[in-house]
Design a protein around this nucleic acid. Structure first.
Length: 440
RNA sequence: GUGGUCGUAGCUCAGCUGGUAGAGCACUCGGUUGUGGUCCGAGAGGUCGCGGGUUCAAAACCCGUCGAUCACCCCA
């Protein structure tokens, strides 16, 4: 077949879908900026050693190679970034002297991972990140703040209801430690699989891999079963009878997040002790967000606190951040037709053409509308008016402007209503000026 | 990377045990000598993903390949 086929994992949108994506990105941008986050744009590539820095993450990194490079490659092993946290950490170190701390930034850029694509997971995807990073110490209140920023950003988007599940690494690991389990990192990774493999399999893994006794395993699972929308979880955890200083710290930090969130974004955050996150660099609060009806997508927004986002040996830069999977949210919703744009072009008004000779007059008319911010285009040809209206209709353009004996008339092609207007005063209804997102 | 399923018109799909392609929607033109959406009529559009094999004959069977999709893994 000569027609090119799509590339697995590299979704491309149709114009009307792209309008949805653009509107979402604009919305996120406004929300982040309202909270004082500065924008950053980092290069697409990072040195391989930077990308592979974080533990032995088996991320499938796309490696860059120049066609003309020597076989042995004098190229300094570059790879495309697979998230925005790693580039940000590098950027912070590189520009530490020029940044003011605490520093808050947002970043909305594509990322690449070579994994096998699936619904909601792509090889190229858009991610919207916020992080707050400080020098030396990062106050715990930022762990509350980033969750609230996300709540604010996601709210107001026409998406299915979303809910953020929050836990604290100190809480879980302190609990395991208090129980007498030594490899608390591994225990956490096992608990992370709870949703996938179930209670019994997790118990068996705990017993087999971290030498937990059946009683210890059961206690871990009891902890993981606790969840609450308010601080009542603190009592539930205490009731399990484990005591440990790290556990206490975790409990009070998580309580602070849940307490503040309950006040400022009721119903958005739920404390959930089975949230662990597979990644090893989180050290405090961890977040995962699910979209109602799309639980199968997994987390659409996650992140956490890391005491060592970056370090140059002398200074450490702790941070806390969250990342919204824009593609993960949008592509499945678009494909399912759950979300769409009101039209497929920005155009609000088509200036009809009675005769090709009228084109320059029509251009002038269009320009008068554009000057006042009304996206306008002139009809492609002086075809029959029926066709010109159809041209608009097919694209979802709401208005057609005619010039006739009555003067200039605007027709709303949805209602069919046509009225004589003053081109320099006419305003479309606010909802029609630009395309908007509609949810099913 | 491992395994399953699928690949026919722009889209959704039909095509029985092999006999060389069809529907609906969309599209173009006309009915409607310039204000669409309904209706009616006509028309255009496919080397049946690609390559090879079996056969008198393959969209159909076999092999390979590419692509899609799902599961595992991992995660946004």
């Amino acid at each position: 077949m000569s027609r090119p086929q799509p590339l697995s994992g590299f979704p491309e949108l149709l114009p009307r879908q792209r309008i949805v994506e653009q509107q979402v990105v604009d919305h996120l941008r406004r929300a982040f900026e309202l909270h004082g986050f500065a924008n950053l744009h980092t290069r697409a590539v990072e040195p391989m050693d930077q990308l592979l820095r974080k533990g032995e993450t088996s991320k499938e990194v796309y490696v860059l190679r120049r066609l003309q490079a020597d076989a042995e490659g004098g190229d300094a092993g570059l790879g495309l970034h697979f998230d925005l946290t790693v580039p940000f950490a590098r950027y912070v170190l590189e520009n530490a002297g020029k940044l003011n701390f605490p520093f808050r930034r947002y970043q909305i850029q594509p990322c690449w991972r070579g994994e096998r694509p699936q619904e909601g997971r792509y090889r190229e995807f858009l991610q919207a990140d916020i992080d707050i990073v400080d020098l030396g110490e990062l106050p715990a209140h930022y762990e509350v703040e980033v969750a609230l920023v996300i709540a604010d950003a996601l709210r107001g988007l026409p998406l299915p209801p979303v809910r953020m599940h929050v836990n604290n690494r100190k809480l879980s690991q302190g609990f395991y430690q208090g129980l007498g389990i030594h490899d608390t990192d591994e225990a956490l990774r096992i608990i992370d699989k709870l949703d996938k493999i179930g209670h019994d399999a997790v118990a068996k893994l705990l017993i087999d891999t971290v030498d937990a006794t059946p009683e210890q395993a059961e206690a871990c699972l009891k902890l993981a079963s606790i969840s609450a929308e308010d601080t009542s979880f603190v009592e539930e955890v205490r009731a399990l009878g484990v005591s440990d200083p790290l556990l206490d710290e975790g409990l009070s930090e998580l309580a602070a997040v849940v307490d503040a969130a309950a006040k400022e974004a009721p119903g958005f955050v739920v404390a959930d002790m089975k949230i662990a996150r597979g990644l090893d660099y989180y050290t405090g609060t961890v977040y995962e967000t699910v979209m109602e009806g799309y639980e199968g997508l997994g987390s659409i927004c996650s992140g956490g606190r890391y005491d060592k986002l970056a370090s140059d040996g002398k200074h450490t830069y702790p941070g806390v951040g969250l990342s919204i999977g824009v593609s993960r949210i949008l592509v499945p919703l678009l494909q399912a037709g759950k979300i769409d744009a009101t039209r497929e072009v920005p155009t609000c008004v088509i200036v009809a053409l009675a005769d090709e000779e009228d084109r320059s007059a029509a251009n002038a008319l269009a320009q008068r509308l554009r000057r006042r911010g009304v996206p306008t285009q002139v009809s492609p040809s002086a075809a029959k008016f029926g066709k010109q209206i159809k041209f608009a209709d097919k694209r979802g353009i709401p208005f057609v402007l005619f010039t006739n004996e009555e003067g200039t008339q605007i027709k709303d092609i949805r209602s069919g209503e046509q009225t004589t207007v003053d081109v320099d005063a006419w305003e479309p209804p606010a909802a029609d000026l630009h395309p908007t997102i509609v949810a099913e």
